[in-house]
Design a protein around this nucleic acid. Sequence first.
DNA 1: TCGTTCGTGATACGACCGTACCATGATGTT
DNA 2: AACATCATGGTACGGTCGTATCACGAACGA
Lengths: 201, 201
Amino acid sequence: MPKRVDHEERRAQIAEALIRVAGRQGLHAVGMRDVAAEAGVSLRLVQYYFETKEKLLFYGLQHLTGLFTARVGARLAAAGPHPGPRATVEALLLASLPIDEESRTFHLVYTSYAILSVTDEALAAQPFIDNPDAAENALAGFIEEAKAAGLVGPGIDARVEAIGLLAMAAAMGTSMLVGQRTAESAIAVLHHHLDRIFATA
Amino acid sequence: MPKRVDHEERRAQIAEALIRVAGRQGLHAVGMRDVAAEAGVSLRLVQYYFETKEKLLFYGLQHLTGLFTARVGARLAAAGPHPGPRATVEALLLASLPIDEESRTFHLVYTSYAILSVTDEALAAQPFIDNPDAAENALAGFIEEAKAAGLVGPGIDARVEAIGLLAMAAAMGTSMLVGQRTAESAIAVLHHHLDRIFATA
DNA sequence: TCGTTCGTGATACGACCGTACCATGATGTT
DNA sequence: AACATCATGGTACGGTCGTATCACGAACGA
């Protein structure tokens, strides 16, 4: 047999090439040949490791969420060893804003997948990400924790605020993507609401 | 000369066919032939009234925003002759949620255009909609008006709240589109924040 | 050592897409 | 009445896309 290459590693390389070219040209405009060229391999290789384009796209989505999860984790770790609930929530929200090229690509490609899954039933069949409510549950948990510690007012509904914060971060991220909003503006709005929620009244 | 047809009306018919098929298959998957079949005309006709696909897409975006504006106006008119600021804001927000087939199509196709404009410079060159800040300015104005009337507390920043409300409506709308959130849940979150803003404390 | 199997390349095929071209009634104008 | 022009249909062309096919070297098992 030949070199006995690591299939999973190769698939990851190709998937990252897919994500890069999708971030550059848009997910709809990505072809097998583009991915092959970006990864520096032949078209046949892409076919070999992902037999069909549908499987390539699906693997790419999984890989993208994995990369994003890792990025959020790194941002959280950079926030310090034992950050308070507010710092944690703030880090989570800011990590999802498209502020640099990497997060810009994440946001664009992920949103493209979301839109694609509306009309592509093969994508919608699988759970869209590992757990769509994971971020919401995490945020609600941190706010609840802060509430128990007396850091937020009694009139605050943790789940409603978690949903609202995530929704604002997502939509303002898209606005940043299309050039309708600056990062400073989006961050200011998030800070305003964080100040409101974490008011030590 | 032949029938001397109204070009603008014909273009509108074709554009609406484009929007319908885009709502069904996704904007990325619409071809000239699909639009022609949906409109019940020949491929040549679509070429005749829109010489190129790019022009068809651009006209479709303009037409879509026009239809949406008309829908929002109708919803506002249905809210009564002289609704209060809160009722107006609520009507504006709820009109943008994808609750029926028409608004579902609006939301999907409009978001598809937004994502497309990130990578398609021809679309991004034109101002993405007539005035991206129109809705934000309108909402901020209504909240400010309510503030002057003493209907909202003094600690409320009208513009920040307007941005936040619109962002929440947009992102939760997309969540509804992909099946991650129910309409009831989205409306409840919006009501919660409206109650907070319009608190006659 | 030898054959089987894995990894890789080049290329071909059929379908579809956007666009261009040619043809032809229908209808005004002169 | 005749001609120019608008509206419309049919069809062909070049390109690209996803997929399939053929071919070959390289390495491990027996």
